[in-house]
Design a protein around this nucleic acid. Structure first.
Length: 650
RNA sequence: GCCGGUGUAGCUCAGUGGUAGAGCAACUGAUUCGUAAUCAGUAGGUCGCAGGUUCAAAUCCAGUCACCGGCUCCA
């Protein structure tokens, strides 16, 4: 796709009072509820899962008026505490976020994690004083006078930007802050055991990196101690799911210091998974009328002049390299290559639509300090495709893409989507008629698909409107992966044409689209979604055979060969440890199936199966195991689908 | 790029100026064992990198690289 500079609203914190959060836009696919795979909280059988699964509700700030008051008030308590302990600290803004609050200060010395402890203690004292919070409506002049008296330049700047009525809140007699509210009436309504200061971070005044760098303190606050505990538990859960952690624990990938930041090394286990994903992706694309391309990683820099990338995307590109007499550029995008391929011969309207896809590896310059595991890297592979079509084909083509997107994403158990349609921005190229036609095509396709969507007026790229799609993961986080963009720019710049029915030369419509976005990033999101408990079809090691004694080794070896011959990714544990240890090791690697082989199994031609997803499956004949495993692979199933044996306790 | 933090064995971490440590993993041996850790032994580190201070640096100082939490930016 071409450069898109639009901000991702999902990543900006919920700004106080102005943010509206819409949940009604979430679209769950209408596909019949097939075997709903267990997702969250898959715990290994036998694991001490003693904690009672009492569900404690943790509403977002925007969903709970009371939490909103608590967090709003808490940020003022924080500011008051900071100014007591650090008299030089100047206050700025302190909004709530969906899970807590923060406050930005300008302080000569940065706060340390140790300072947080003292600040928290001071906050506890303030809460204990049962101070009333009182709203005071004042004139602009009075607000200005009060702020000036306290020497708070940032507050003055805020005041200049707000509309009447101007309100401030007093916190007891000795502290007040400019604020729209709402707040609790008294600090006694704040639970001193249900808040926590979480971290300090740098943040720019007004989010502008050219302005002062402030010290931001993040905190969270709840109604009850139990909610706080649950919040912390969920934070730990997110940590357990961290793809960087799982990537190294499960030996999937690494990022090597020596090679440089943001460059991914896929280890055999991760590479195997990636290959499975790619194979699935390719077959889905062939089935949907795509052809595949391979294009170079570098090209003469003039290509990037023609495409315009050197003008508007240069800061995200690796520098050029000199080879012989020519300058070459590592590609940050695949589109110009697909465009060149299109232009390599004269096209007839009869050929359209042309659908070309490529798993194209691109390199983009990312500033130091922004890299993050697989989520933000400098080299990544896009599942890129370009559709060249006639204007009247737009609606059908977009609908096709939406269908394919659903097919692919739902295979990884992403079935809830949030969709954004972005329309023409102020600064843009192209005729009104073309924009209207294209935007109508997108709307028509979304309506035919029956997907709800939100319109971001003027949020499109300068070269065309677009649809962005976010997926929801198992713990409720939204991730943007898929994007569908129309492009009126590149066909123009490269003078793309087709011969129309009347013999005239016409400009084709170009659609960019990616479903995973980046394979690396999607792999990270998927890993966190499954918490490393990959479905059977995707697991790098599907079954590990565990021999109880050496005597059964020959039988185990023979079974291993049978499984491998059937295309099952099977291994045999030769470590000679006791069974308990073998199981522990297998469970820690999150292998879907462990096959215990003892004398009994060897005699009867069976294997005792232990499944992470399906529980204890008991003794299964080799014939049945092979059939079920092969079927599961063909169907890309999460498990074998064999009946579990009820455990004696139930 | 900016603010703060961190970098010691494959992993998790201890070690605040005076001979580099533990657990797990690895390796060797014994054990042949039935559903989440058998026992014993061995080996493994220029303390991220390159400088400086010091009789002496993992430890103190400035630099640099990477990572972590954020900001900014983004797939």
């Amino acid at each position: 796709m071409t450069a898109s500079r639009s901000a991702d609203p999902a990543q900006s914190p919920g700004a106080a009072s102005t943010t509206t959060v819409t949940n009604s836009l979430t679209t769950t696919t209408s596909s019949e509820p097939t075997q709903a795979p267990a997702r969250a909280g898959i715990s290994a059988p036998g694991q001490a899962g003693a904690e009672a699964p009492v569900s404690i509700s943790l509403p977002k700030t925007s969903e709970s008026p009371q939490l909103l008051r608590i967090r709003h008030s808490m940020s003022h308590v924080l500011a008051m505490a900071v100014q007591k302990l650090f008299p030089q600290a100047q206050v700025t803004i302190g909004p709530w976020t969906e899970s807590g609050f923060y406050y930005d200060f300008d302080n000569p010395e940065p706060f340390t994690e140790a300072d947080l402890k003292a600040i928290k203690k001071e906050m506890g004292k303030i809460i204990g004083r049962r101070l009333p919070l009182q709203r005071l409506e004042v004139s602009r002049a009075e607000a200005e006078a009060r702020i000036t008296a306290q020497n708070e330049p940032y507050k003055l700047e805020i005041l200049a930007g707000i509309q009447e009525p101007i309100s401030l809140y007093t916190l007891g007699d000795d502290w007040w802050d400019l604020c729209a509210g709402p707040h609790v009436d008294n600090t006694s309504e704040l639970n001193p055991k249900a808040f926590e200061l979480e971290s300090v971070a740098g943040a720019y005044w007004r989010g502008d990196e050219k302005r002062a760098q402030l010290q931001r303190i993040y905190g969270t606050a709840w109604e009850t101690q139990e909610q706080l505990a649950e919040y912390k538990r969920r934070k730990e859960e997110a940590l357990r799911r961290d793809h960087r952690r799982l990537g190294s624990d499960l030996n999937l990938f690494s990022i090597e210091d020596e090679a440089g930041a943001g460059l991914v090394f896929w280890h055999p286990r991760g590479a195997r998974m990636r290959l499975l994903i790619e194979d699935f992706w390719r077959s889905a694309h062939f089935a949907d009328g795509y052809e595949l391309l391979y294009t170079p990683h570098v090209a003469d820099i003039s290509l990037w002049k023609t495409s315009g990338h050197l003008d508007f995307y240069a800061e995200s590109m690796f520098g050029p390299m000199q080879v012989d007499e020519r300058q070459y550029q590592l590609k940050p995008m695949n589109c110009p290559f697909h465009v060149l391929t299109y232009a390599s011969s004269l096209r007839s309207y009869r050929e359209l639509p042309i659908r070309w896809a490529e798993l194209g590896t691109v390199y983009r310059y990312e500033r130091p300090g922004v890299m993050h595991g697989l989520m933000r890297v400098r080299g990544f592979t896009q599942d890129d495709a370009h559709v060249f079509c006639l204007p009247e084909q737009i609606g059908d083509e977009i609908l096709r893409i939406l269908d394919l997107t659903e097919t692919i994403l739902s295979t990884f158990d992403f079935k809830t989507y949030e969709i954004n349609l972005s329309t023409r921005p102020e600064k843009s190229i192209g005729d009104d008629a073309v924009w209207d036609l294209a935007t109508q095509g997108l709307i028509e396709a979304l309506d035919r698909k029956g997907w709800a969507y939100k319109v971001d007026e003027g949020g499109g790229a300068f070269y065309g409107p677009k649809i962005d799609l976010k997926i929801e993961d198992a713990i409720g986080r939204m991730w943007q992966c898929s994007t569908i963009q129309l492009d009126f720019n590149l066909p123009e710049r490269f003078n793309l044409e087709y011969v129309a029915a009347d013999g005239s030369r016409q400009r084709p419509i170009m659609i960019h689209r990616a479903i995973f976005g980046s394979l690396e990033r999607f792999f990270g999101i998927m890993t966190e979604n499954y918490a490393g408990d990959f479905p059977f079809w995707l697991a790098p090691e599907q079954i590990r055979l565990l021999p109880v004694t050496d005597e059964v080794m020959p039988y185990a070896e023979q079974l291993l060969e049978q499984l491998k011959a059937a295309g099952i990714r099977a291994t045999l544990d030769h470590s000679g440890e006791r069974l308990g240890k073998l199981i522990r090791n297998g469970e820690q690697m999150k292998i879907p199936l462990l096959g215990v082989i003892g004398a009994k199994e060897a005699e009867t031609g069976a294997v005792s199966l232990r499944s992470r997803r399906e529980g204890e499956l008991g003794s299964v004949t080799v014939v049945n195991l092979l059939a079920a495993a092969v079927k599961a692979n063909v169907e890309r199933a999460a498990g074998l689908g064999l009946p579990a044996i009820p455990s004696p306790g139930q």
